[in-house]
């Protein structure tokens, strides 16, 4: 009797199966994203209207004769205050979107009632979270591109820096921004209603990371806190890459810090995910909401 080859069972998924599962999650999330045109319209409008309040306040603070602006230029070393505000607020928006979308990816599945059944399928569970992040990252890249074009065309912002360095900064920021999102997703699925956590996290970024002002203006204790937040380095590096002509020298230290933070947040995000997964199996609470 010839020996029959035993097909790899669904209970023993391989790397290829994991990739297929991730691809299925990516495709599903993308389909949901393009199903709602209002989300796409928002992507064009929010980058323009969100920083407006800060930009006009900065314009008022500059004064009729530009005396305030001269002080601001001394403090920041940059002449482009609209671009300065725009870069800071766009990075804040990026982190805010990740907290809501990646942070709530599993929670949304829980609310739809599909999380428990997905959890029982023989796929690597992290692929649900990772898969949800990919379309989100693509939409953020589109948002950043649209925002850059809108600022250049509507506000006349001159991006003196390098597009490639700006892209490099984004790439270096991805692990820390999304690692935080992964960590958040695990907290949210455990705490259920976790809006207050999002408000707290995005509030910390808004207050400490220099979204609209140079860090040197803050008291020392706030600067010490800011030094422990990766978004501080993302904002500083992106301003340097996009608005100044400092080139590589202007972002090298920030990139190093971002890679360190990225390693930490990815590890923390994955560890929290494993903890949440184990806890969910023990308590059986994964389907509750």
């Amino acid at each position: 009797m010839s020996q029959l080859s035993v097909p790899s069972s669904l209970g023993r998924p391989g790397a290829l199966g994991g990739l297929r599962a991730t691809w299925a999650v990516i495709r599903r999330e993308w389909t949901i994203f393009i199903r709602y045109p209002s989300w796409i319209i928002s992507m064009f409008i929010w980058p323009i209207i969100f920083p407006l309040g800060y930009i006009f306040t900065a314009r008022a603070l500059s004064g009729v004769d530009g005396s305030g602006l001269a002080t601001f230029q001394q403090n920041t070393g940059l002449t482009e205050y609209v671009g300065y505000m725009a870069v800071g607020t766009m990075i804040w928006m990026w982190q805010n979107i990740v907290l809501w979308q990646v942070g709530y990816a599993l929670r949304n599945e829980q609310m739809r009632g599909t999380l428990e059944s997905n959890w029982l399928s023989p796929t690597a569970r992290f692929s649900y979270l990772f898969g949800a992040s990919v379309p989100q990252l693509i939409s953020v890249l589109m948002l950043m591109t649209v925002a850059g074009l809108e600022y250049a065309l509507l506000f006349g912002v001159k991006f003196h820096g390098s597009l490639w360095l700006a892209a490099l900064v984004m790439l270096a920021a991805v692990p820390s921004v999304y690692g935080l999102g992964f960590a958040f997703a695990s907290v949210v699925i455990t705490a259920k209603e976790a809006n207050a956590f999002v408000f707290l996290a995005r509030g910390i970024v808004m207050v400490f990371c220099g979204v609209t002002y140079p860090l040197a203006i803050q008291p020392q204790w706030m600067q010490d806190v800011a030094a422990w937040l990766p978004q501080t380095y993302v904002i500083h590096a992106m301003r340097s890459a996009a608005l100044s002509t400092d080139g590589w020298a202007g972002i090298a230290r920030d990139l190093g810090m971002l890679l360190l933070f990225g390693l930490f947040w990815l590890a923390a995000g994955y560890a929290l995910f494993l903890w949440m997964e184990r806890r969910a199996r023990v308590t059986g609470a994964i389907g509750q909401y």
């Binding site: 800060y54 306040t57 900065a58 008022a60 603070l61 500059s62 004064g63 009729v64 004769d65 530009g66 005396s67 305030g68 602006l69 002080t71 601001f72 403090n75 920041t76 808004m206 207050v207 979204v211 609209t212 002002y213 140079p214 203006i217 803050q218």
Partner: peptide
């Protein structure tokens, strides 16, 4: 952030431009 932004535009602690 507006408070700190105001300080960044202020001359000797006063928002003269404003």
């Amino acid at each position: 952030p507006i408070y700190f932004m105001g300080l960044a535009f202020s001359i000797n602690g006063k928002a003269e431009g404003f």
